[in-house]
């Protein structure tokens, strides 16, 4: 009986250890799920050669792209888009820029995290180049213009006439 109990114990204990692992497995699963379904405001990422090969500009249609800049709690940077919005043709590459100034007396590093609304349109918004791909260091008092190149997928559903691209700037000085 003791041996039988020990064997059963081991079997059930392995299940609970496996479930601990499954908790961690949820992290990549979550990302994969968001990528497949285009949830969570995640944007598409293409490089420009793919874009030229894949898309024809659709000059018959205009879509409004709005830019929003937010600071995370406690982030002192002055962070804003140079232009609040643009009218764009799907299938054509555009550039835009944000500006950031570090008003403090310390050198800091920021990380911008993008999000696109409406959420289901996120995967039709492709960034070919973005300041959010890298951390952005700013010396004390420095101002920087941060570029962004993007293309709206011509397959964007006709019902969507406005896309909003919002960035939140996080202070990652201490994480580095």
């Amino acid at each position: 009986m003791a041996d039988l109990n020990a064997r059963s114990f081991a079997r059930v204990a392995i299940v609970s250890l496996a479930m601990f692992g499954f908790g961690y497995l949820l992290v990549p699963l979550y990302d994969i799920f968001c990528e497949i379904t285009g949830l969570n405001g995640k944007t598409g990422r293409l490089d420009e050669t793919t874009v030229v090969a894949r898309y024809q500009p659709d000059t018959s249609r205009l879509v409004t792209v709005q830019f929003i800049a937010n600071n995370n709690q406690g982030m002192p940077w002055e962070f804003r888009p140079l232009e609040p919005s643009m009218r764009v043709h799907p299938g054509k590459v555009y550039s835009a820029a944000f500006s950031a100034r570090n008003p403090t007396a310390q050198d800091m590093v920021g990380q911008a995290v993008p999000s696109v609304a409406p959420g289901k349109a996120g995967r039709y918004f492709n960034k070919t180049e973005c300041f959010c791909f890298n951390q952005q260091p700013l010396a004390a008092g420095e101002t920087k213009e941060m570029p962004l190149r993007f293309i709206v997928d011509p397959n964007l559903p006709a019902a969507v006439t406005t896309l909003t691209l919002a960035y939140t700037m996080f202070d990652v000085t201490l994480i580095n």
């Binding site: 059930v12 299940v15 609970s16 250890l17 496996a18 479930m19 601990f20 692992g21 499954f22 908790g23 961690y24 949820l26 992290v27 995370n72 990380q111 995290v113 939140t168 996080f170 202070d171 990652v172 994480i175």
Partner: peptide, 30 residues
């Protein structure tokens, strides 16, 4: 219990490492 308590333990461990070990499971900046 054996199927879900370990998942909670995993989530709590992620919180702990986010705070003290520099991981970014739940930190958008990372």
């Amino acid at each position: 219990l054996i199927a879900t308590m370990p998942v909670l333990a995993g989530g709590l461990t992620m919180l702990l490492t986010d705070k003290f070990a520099g991981t970014s499971f739940f930190d958008a900046a990372g």
